[in-house]
């Protein structure tokens, strides 16, 4: 087994593009669920909105890339508005039904034959991110090494921009949550009626929260497609939403840095397990394939089995997350 290779992969994954994108989407989800108590089960829909916002405006409308970037913010905010209007006056579970349904519908619509001229259908949209890479100070095709980390020049550029944005957005969320505005959100999370009785328009605040978190999710989707240089409908599968949920709960719901910590831990673990399994000696591998059907395909599926099991067990035993405060957890049990 090539442990050097496994560790190189694992280290690179720790702060790699996936962690960056998922952590950002998790920051948005944290605004929704962690601070406001909104059950958004369709974060991937906001990511798709951000991604197609830029993809469609460049591919179909022929707009400038940067105008497309602006448009993708507007688009994810509008999506939040549309989903919020029918649901935010109702009990929490209605939002979850509508968001999961909408996120899957967005994927189906984007990949459909009818939308082919606009979204590129199943093939999606490519070659729209040129202006972004034109600004890169790094040679796009060259490998750069930093200690244990090793990335292509284009990835270094994406990561630099992405992580800067991630940290800026996280700091912005922190500032907001420390303000009276954030206090009101947390109050609504704890008890909406109490907040209303004290003169807070809960519906309005929930809508603001849904839009803010949705736009952050849209930014995550935007970064993802810029990094991949293509918009593919099927990358916005609902299971991504729950990967993000798992990351958030691992890091600790309603804590500022938890999305980054959770995404990094979760993704590092996944990459380590997958690469280790793939690098197993042939004999071991063959016997595993015989006994527990551990084919290449099934190694990929293992990731999702772990997401499911992780989410189930975390929600059951550590709903505040591995790093959640014990004190807050004790309050939940009351």
């Amino acid at each position: 087994m090539d442990w050097g290779f496994i560790f190189e992969r694992t280290f690179s994954a720790m702060i790699g593009p996936e962690v960056m994108v998922y952590a950002l989407a998790a920051v948005g989800l944290n605004v929704h669920f962690g601070y406001t108590g909104l059950m958004n089960f369709g974060q991937v829909g906001f990511m798709a909105a951000g991604a197609y916002g830029v993809g469609v405006s460049v591919f179909w409308l022929g707009w400038n890339f940067w105008v497309g970037v602006l448009f993708s913010f507007v688009y994810s905010a509008v999506l939040a508005l549309l989903l919020g209007i029918p649901t935010l006056r109702l009990r929490a579970d209605y939002l979850s039904l509508v968001t999961i349904a909408a996120s899957e519908s967005i994927r189906l619509l984007a990949r459909s034959r009818v939308m082919q001229p606009i979204t590129g259908g199943v093939e999606g949209v490519n070659q729209f991110a040129g202006p972004f890479y034109d600004l890169s100070p790094f040679e796009l095709g060259k490998f750069y090494s930093f200690g244990p980390f090793k990335y292509l020049g284009r990835d270094v550029w994406v990561l630099l921009v992405g992580w800067t944005l991630l940290i800026l957005v996280t700091l912005m969320v922190r500032a907001l949550m420390k303000s009276p505005w954030g206090r009101t959100l947390r109050a609504i999370r704890e008890d909406e009626d109490a907040a209303r009785a004290l003169g807070k328009n809960a519906y309005f605040y929930k809508m603001q929260s849904l839009m803010l978190g949705g736009m952050i999710g849209g930014l995550a989707g935007l970064l993802q497609v810029v990094q991949k240089a293509s918009v593919q409908a099927d990358t916005f599968n609902p299971v991504i939403t729950f990967t993000i949920w798992t990351m958030l709960i691992v890091g600790g719901v309603g804590r500022i840095w938890s999305p980054i910590v959770g995404a990094s831990i979760y993704w590092t673990l996944i990459v380590f397990v997958e690469n280790t399994l793939r690098q197993l000696p042939d004999g071991t591998r063959a016997s595993l394939e015989r006994t527990i059907e551990l084919s290449d395909f099934n190694i990929a599926m293992l990731r999702f089995i772990l997401v499911g099991a992780g989410l189930l067990l975390l929600a059951r035993f550590r709903p505040q997350g591995i790093f959640g405060s014990r004190e807050e957890m004790a309050l939940d049990r009351r």
Binding site: M172, R183, T184, Q208
Partner: peptide
């Protein structure tokens, strides 16, 4: 925090001012 929530017309409760 429970107490402070009760105050009406707080500027910091507006999104943009909060920033």
């Amino acid at each position: 925090e429970n107490m402070k929530l009760g105050a009406l017309n707080q500027r910091g409760e507006k999104f943009w001012s909060a920033l």
